[in-house]
Design a protein around this nucleic acid. Structure first.
Lengths: 269, 269
DNA sequence: CTTGACCTTGTCGTAGCGTCAACGTTTCTA
DNA sequence: TAGAAACGTTGACGCTACGACAAGGTCAAG
């Protein structure tokens, strides 16, 4: 048989067979006078074995080992590893599909923010915050999304819990919307605008104690950050950059809030 | 922030971020006078989104589309495709794991032939045939394994069914072992050895009608092959090579058997 | 001044082949 | 008998999502 014939018979491509030769998986067969490779049934048998093994998911390197080893021991061992590997992959895929299912459900309900997929905890919050009615609120959601991806889960969940309580209180939620609006108004203001300081105070006043505790006592090791809702969450790793994301007057208000909050936490940065 | 800082903050490597720049996933940020890239919170937000999307399993190309498209429609669509893709992968993995479980079970029972993994149908047959007690039997099993990998499932199952009946009949099985032994004896004989012709006749006599029908009337399209148990199965695609796999006198016996069988099938090759 | 920890661009490697390219051989057909 | 179709040969690049170098420039501390 020539290479094309054996390839068709076994169900492989000629390219694959030559590749196996190259890797030493199958020795080069004898050549005809014209240089063509000449195959017999023996090679077909080996190729069929290779095919079965690769279809199971073994790498070509492992297939070579199994073929060379020539005794069932190595094979059993490799198959065991392979199964463990496949089990991991399967679990991984399932986890991703669960997240996907959730996202698709949100998408069908029209709840998926332009910002894209988020964690379940954050997804809950999205419903309660006002989406896209305030530029500051929108920015805040982005900050939350960033926080969501970077903070450690324990701290994150504690903060979400406190935030949910805040957002579930109609009175406080209304107040929050008002403060978002006042932040919006400062978009083009100067940093020494007279509205800055009272806004900072009102922002700080909105932060309940449990949220403050969650924010300050979040990580387990060292503490060198604070943050604030609205505009909560992003901080530890971002510090300066976080404030730079606001217009000057807005940043001043946030700074003012931070000062008051660190004071309340009995703290000197 | 410099690249190392934002990388650590978001949970990526610097190499990954530069890669994203290269692919146009994230625009190159402004540079400091020394050439270092300077990042702000905006980039961190985008990177966090990229990270979430890739963790879901999207390719970078798709992530780029989603980011560029900037509206939820494309995202939903891509997520749908992704889920379908993951579903396929999951089913694929599960199928492989089922086959693996079967193989591992056989392996634990010591039933796994050195020949390696096979299909369930063939695995059943392996138990009834005598393993490694005859060189011809061993060769026959290899032929079966090759047949197993190449024949179409319908034909294959019909032939297995007939073979199982044959192997389950103690009388016929004993006769088969005897014929294997007589084949073994011909390993070094000349093709005109007087034992060849009677062996061919006895081989043909062992093939029951239902097996012959399964062999001849196997494929659905055209028919141009025959094969024979013992030494059954491999044929359609291998013809000449199949006979070449035997010693000359053995090949002569098989050829004799084939002639008788084609005669019985009312047939002229 | 040196050391070490950053940053820069660029290139190679990964798994398992698909897909040209550029060329010779065999076989079928007009 | 010539030409085309269909084989074969070796060799090289492409794909994914980066990791791991190399060979250098920048910057802060000891």
């Amino acid at each position: 048989m020539r290479i094309g014939e054996i390839a068709a018979a076994v169900g492989l491509t000629t390219r694959a067979i030559r590749h196996y030769h190259h890797l030493g998986l199958l020795p080069e067969p004898a050549r005809r006078p014209n240089g063509y490779r000449e195959y017999g049934l023996r090679q077909a048998i080996v190729l069929a074995r290779v095919k079965r093994l690769t279809e199971l998911g073994l790498g070509l390197e492992e297939v070579r080992d199994v073929l060379a080893d020539d005794e069932g021991r190595e094979l059993t061992e490799v198959l065991g590893e392979l199964d463990a590997d496949l089990a991991r992959q399967e679990a991984d895929i399932r986890a991703r599909r669960e997240r996907l299912a959730e996202l698709l459900r949100m998408s069908r309900e029209g709840l998926l923010p332009g910002e894209g997929p988020v964690s379940p905890g954050l997804a809950e919050l999205f419903g309660r915050f006002s989406p896209a009615e305030s530029a500051t609120a929108a920015k805040d959601l982005e900050h939350l999304a960033l926080f969501d991806a970077t903070a450690d889960p324990g701290r994150r969940d504690r903060i979400y819990l406190a935030l949910r309580e805040l957002a579930d209180n109609p009175e406080l939620a209304a107040r929050m919307r008002e403060l978002y609006a006042r932040m919006d108004d400062l978009a083009d203001a100067a940093p020494d605008d007279p509205r800055v300081e009272p806004l900072g105070e009102d922002l700080a006043a909105l932060v309940p104690d449990d949220l403050l505790v969650a924010l300050v006592h979040g990580g387990e090791g060292h503490e060198d950050d604070t943050r604030t809702p609205p505009d909560s969450g992003v901080g530890s790793a971002f510090g300066e950059a976080f404030l730079d994301d606001f217009a000057p007057a807005q940043a001043a208000a946030v700074r003012q809030m931070l000062k008051l909050l660190t004071g309340r936490a009995g703290w000197t940065p």
